[in-house]
Amino acid sequence: MVADKSDKPEFKRSPSRFVDRITADGAEGWPVEPGRYRLVVSRACPWANRSMIARRLLGLEPALSLAVADPVQDERSWRFTLDPDDRDPVLGIRYLAEAYHARDPEYTGGVSVPAIVDVPSGKLVTNDYLRLPAELATEWRDLHREGAPDLYPEPLREEIEEISDAIFRDVNNGVYMCGFARTQQTYERAFTALFDRLDALSDHLATRRYLVGDSITVADIALFVTLVRFDAVYHGHFKCNRNKLTEMPVLWAYARDLFQTPGIGDTVDFDHIKRHYYVVHREINPSGIVPLGPDLSGWRTPHGREVLGGRPFGDGTPPGPPPEEERVPARF
């Protein structure tokens, strides 16, 4: 994720700079090949979390390896200090910025995750965070596991895109617009749009288990990554405090349903999430103190959404457990 956190009164999200596509036919110069690319993420980042979930649900772990950056950045942004010798063991680099500069030595912009890096050349291929989950669901289809769900079904794509655009504008980006607002007016405008949208989504989900169709799609993934961070970070840190998620019954049950779905909740690391936001955003939290709350045990309580029907994986099956090296430590 790349954000313009300047003194401008309204938060603006910087567009992805590198938007090359990795395609099944290789028409754009980057063919899908097992083992050729490495997905670089931070478990703290909601945009990276989207790609992590899609990769897990589709069973792409053997084909697309994963690099996890330290949730706390320094002046050079994302770093591999969680790995031995502070280097990514596959790419051999200390900072994701090195892959950006391998691609463009003159690049001076932000360094964001998720990013896909070409392992043989060490060059960044894409940081197109919005499009990556759908690309993994379509262009990488030949490498999906047996029983992989269709996260971007063609007959539903127009509806998926419409609701995903609204979620991005008012919810995914809306929490940041609240958190980094520089005037009362811009904050209140973003705050109102955020909760108006959450109320509309709650009404939409009151009688249906998933956002579009009767199984999980990339639209659900897009909404989940903000909801799962809401009480831990956005409610207090970003002043999105009309309600906690736990005080919005439909959305709270919906989020728990997804969290308890194999391949979704097992990508979430609340420790990384909280440390990133509260330590890195010193302009919002100058002390860098990370709060001990909230109580996270409610994420594993029954949600009751099964009565609405729906099949989480459509005609597919649940993914197996994550690879041992990718397991998130149990926090609660």
Rank of each mutant, 00 (worst) to 15 (best):
W47N: 03
R169W: 05
E161Y: 07
L39V: 01
A97T: 11
F11E: 11
R55L: 11
N49H: 15
N243L: 10
A253P: 09
D70I: 03
P62T: 11
P312T: 05
G213Q: 11
I273D: 03
R189I: 13
E33V: 15
V250Q: 04
L39S: 07
I163K: 02
D271K: 13
R182D: 03
V90L: 13
D25Y: 10
R209I: 06
M52N: 01
V72P: 02
F195M: 08
F313V: 05
A148L: 06
R169C: 03
W252G: 05
V175S: 03
V171L: 00
N173Y: 04
T267S: 11
D295A: 13
V113D: 02
L57Y: 00
D150E: 14
H101W: 08
A232C: 11
R311Y: 07
R103Y: 08
A48G: 13
D85P: 08
D83Q: 13
A193Q: 14
V90G: 04
V117Q: 04
C240Q: 08
A134S: 15
I167D: 01
Y277N: 02
V225P: 00
R43F: 05
M1F: 12
Y129M: 11
A102T: 10
E28F: 11
E247I: 04
L227D: 01
I221M: 12
K123M: 12
I216L: 01
W30L: 02
V268D: 00
E325P: 00
R141Y: 06
A97G: 06
V90R: 12
P319R: 11
S6T: 15
V225S: 01
M1Y: 12
R331D: 11
D266A: 07
V290S: 06
E324P: 03
I289G: 00
V225A: 03
E162T: 14
T81V: 04
I160E: 07
E154H: 10
E158D: 15
L308H: 02
N127K: 07
Y129W: 14
S77Q: 14
N127E: 15
R300E: 09
E154A: 13
Y100P: 03
R300V: 09
P294Y: 09
A54K: 01
L156P: 04
F168D: 13
D88P: 00
D70T: 02
Q260S: 03
S14V: 14
Q184R: 15
P329V: 07
L245D: 04
P155C: 02
H303Q: 07
P318G: 10
E325S: 13
L64E: 10
P329H: 12
V268S: 00
H235P: 02
A24G: 11
D214K: 03
A48P: 07
P294G: 06
